[in-house]
């Protein structure tokens, strides 16, 4: 991932910045300028809570080249209390324990590296609560 691209996405990567449509209340993550539900353009930014519930999940056994060393790893679509949904890895647990309904906290973690000598790319991963 080229550095400017990573830098550009820091609001959603670091702060979980999302947008709420004032017209229909739809929350989109990352933030957008046009609501995908009602096409409204009056949106306010908000930061998603660092917690949520697994909507659906999988355990990736055959990963992309950059993630091969981590396989098998769990991935999930997580919905936060605000209604925003995001795709994250779920870690610090048995991957097979990550099932729909699981409560997770969203923690700031290293996601990937930009090659052997490039920048480290951060973001959020889920960790089961309790």
């Amino acid at each position: 991932m080229p550095s400017p691209r990573y830098w550009r996405e820091r609001a959603n990567r670091f702060r979980l910045e999302a947008a709420r449509c004032k017209g229909c209340d739809r929350v989109t993550y990352p933030a957008r300028t046009i609501c995908p539900s009602c096409r409204g353009t009056d949106l306010e930014t908000l930061n998603l809570s660092r917690k949520g519930k697994v909507v659906t999940s999988t355990v990736v056994h055959v990963g992309p080249s950059e993630f091969t060393m981590e396989a098998p790893y769990a991935m999930a679509v997580v919905e936060t209390p605000e209604g925003g949904r995001l795709m994250v890895q779920v870690v610090d647990c048995e991957p097979s324990d990550v099932q729909p309904g699981l409560e997770v906290s969203l923690e700031f973690r290293l996601i990937r590296r930009e090659g052997h000598s490039g920048i480290l790319c951060y973001g959020h991963k889920g960790v089961p609560v309790g």
């Binding site: 996405e9 909507v55 981590e70 991935m75 795709m87």
Partner: peptide, 24 residues
């Protein structure tokens, strides 16, 4: 790329999530 692939998902992984949701 920005919200899915960045985190390590694959195409089989996306359809696996669809499958698990269908199972549920």
């Amino acid at each position: 790329q920005e919200t899915e692939v960045y985190h390590g998902i694959t195409f089989p992984g996306l359809y696996a999530m669809i499958a698990r949701a269908h199972m549920e």
